[in-house]
Amino acid sequence: MAKISLQDIRHSYLSNPRLDVDFALKHIDIVFEDGGAYALLGPSGCGKTTLLGIVSGLVSPTSGRVLFDEDDVTDMDTIHRHIAQVFQFPVIYDTMTVFDNLAFPLRNRKIPETDVSSRVLEVAKMLDLEEGIHRRAASLTVDGKQKISLGRGLVREDVNVMMFDEPLTVIDQNMKWELRSKLKELHQNVRTTMIYVTHDQTEALTFADEVLAFKPVRQLPRLAFVLNMSDSVSRVSR
């Protein structure tokens, strides 16, 4: 677990950005405290996903630094950052069973099989996935699959931060509520830092201790300003 600081992050998808509009993210300075539950709120296309990518190491920022506690991890591999991420659409390994899906991140890290087994069963219990744990993951409903994506993050004990990229988009209405409260409950139990990206205000407010609001990039004022604003106006402390 760690405190995550983004220092003066800028990012552009162009190879040679010059104008301000070339940047998907401009001048981001945020600190995510250890154990906090944060929500990034904003319309699509405002750079929330990019921000997650920068934290997870899937995207290298054009400039700026990413710190986990005091360590500079800007150029570190995704795998060494010890992060977990749940995507908009459930990502599961179709040909594996539910059990193997959950065990996958542990086995890749060469953890002894006895530990894997106990840890997986524990997480499966937490997520109500025990039933049919040896069935093929492909046979599950979409919310079951999303739980597996979530579970693959939870099984690892060394996770610095768990990130959610609009994870409930494809879940139907009544399951949404259930999964949301599950997440909240999980956060209380495991106390990992969680960052939750959404464009839904209710979702953001119910999940997070702090909400950071983004505005679309194209629109002025710039993000830097928006984040300043977020300190005073839209940072809802609870």
């Binding site: 998808y13 996903t49 990019t50 990518g53 899937l58 995207v59 290298s60």
Partner: peptide, 8 residues
């Protein structure tokens, strides 16, 4: 979606 400068 995410082009990465390390893997591009």
């Amino acid at each position: 979606m995410n082009s990465n400068r390390r893997t591009a």
